[in-house]
Each structure stands twice: as structure tokens, then as C-alpha cells.
Design a protein around this nucleic acid. Sequence first.
DNA 1: ATGGTTGTTGCACAA
Length: 255
Amino acid sequence: MTWNVNSLKARLPRVEAWIEEVQPDVVCIQETKLAQEKFPTEAFASLGYESAHFGQGQWNGVAIVSKVGLENVMLNFAPTVEQDHEARIISATCGGVRVSSVYVPNGRSLDHDHYQYKLSWMKRLREHLDATCAPSDDVIVAGDFNIAPDDRDVWDVTQFADATHVSEPERDVLRHVCDFGMEDTFRRFHNDAGLFSWWDYRGGSFYKGHGMRIDLLLATTTVAARSTWTTVDRNARKGESPSDHAPVLLKVDAP
DNA sequence: ATGGTTGTTGCACAA
């Protein structure tokens, strides 16, 4: 599963309770907003999980938490790829699957430097995949992509004129990453519009149904073919001090 | 209604 927790320090009690209840095999976390040494390794260990974190403090930060093994951890892109200056990707092999937890740059606005950084980041994600694995491998790239794959994935596309998250260049570069040999597994099970994973804190967006589906679990064909179920846990967006993102779960059979 | 909220840090900025 994948969850942008928007500060693991602020969210740890909810994350612990959620993991204890759901018992996922592998958890991809984004926006820990923690320095490397501040990661709560012991909290996850006491729940029976190994963990690996790539943190920078204050902003960004990604982690993988697993109870099915955690090997060959790689922070940042592969060494042959231009390194990112922020902590936005971590990879590890968990239960025979090469897993990456990614926090794709937001982009801010179409005319902002950060938007070009976002497009560059996605191109480097593809280079990272080409350098570290094959389309025939079991691979999952999960995280906050900050891109809504198509118009079903935003609450009202007319509200997104000249906005990030829906622009053609962003969708093109997401398709380029998928063209490595991966699919957006959610769409294997659900065709409806209006199924979201993120809702703005402001203006009662969650209660109005004003959200986006930007948290994705991309999987290679072998993994996607063994997947049996997926959902967004909207309940995790409710109650006291929620993240603005909900967890997205994918069930995958053993090979 | 050029708004609204949350988390970080610190007298804004990012999302």
C-alpha cells in the first residue's frame, strides 16, 4: 500500500494504528518530513516491520516499511542517473518484488521552475527503472505522483484549466514511465470517475467530494496479473488530524 | 469570496 502521510511526526499515532489494524505486507510512505536520524524505526519494529528511510528533514522524505523482507535498499535514483537534490525516491526488494516509494514534485504552476523539475524528475524515474530492473521483473512503483492520469481522476476538470496535475506534458511523462512496462493497477478494478486519494484541507473539500486520484500503484505485467483487489481507504481521511491523502491498497497473490 | 487549512519553521512557504 501507499500513503502520503504529510509529516510522519504529526501522523505517527494514526499510521501505527492503521498498520496494526490492516497488517499490510509493505507500506510505501511519502512526506515523512523527517531528518534521516528522526525516523521512528523502533515504532515500526515493535509492530513487526523492518523499515528504510530516505529523509532530508522539514520537507519531502520517503520510506518503505515491510514485514516480508527488505533488501538491497537504494536511496535516490540509480547512480548512473542524474541524482535528485531532494529525498523523493527509495527502493528495496520486499518479498521478491522490487518496490519504490516515490514522492513526485508538485510542480506548483505551469510557468514555475518546479514544473520543469517535475517533468525532469519523471524522465529520471524512467531512466532509474531502465537502469535497475526489467519489465519482466516483479516491480511496483508506488507513491504520490501529483498527476491525475485522466479526467476521471479529478472532481471537476473545468476547475483545472491551466493547472498542474492534469496538463498533457505531465500525463505524457506519466505514460512514458508506464511505457517501461507498468500499468496503473487501480484501473484494472475500477472504471468510475470520482474515486480519489487526495482532498485539499481547505474549504471542506473532502465532504464536498472535491479531490483527485494522484496516489498510484504502478506494477509490471507479472505483478498486475496477480493482483486481485484494490481500494482507497477513505476512512483514513476522516477524524482527528488526518493526512490530506488516504492510503491506497493493492492485494497481490503470491507467484 | 483572489477565499480556504495544515505542517513545517520562525516573523513565510509549501502543499
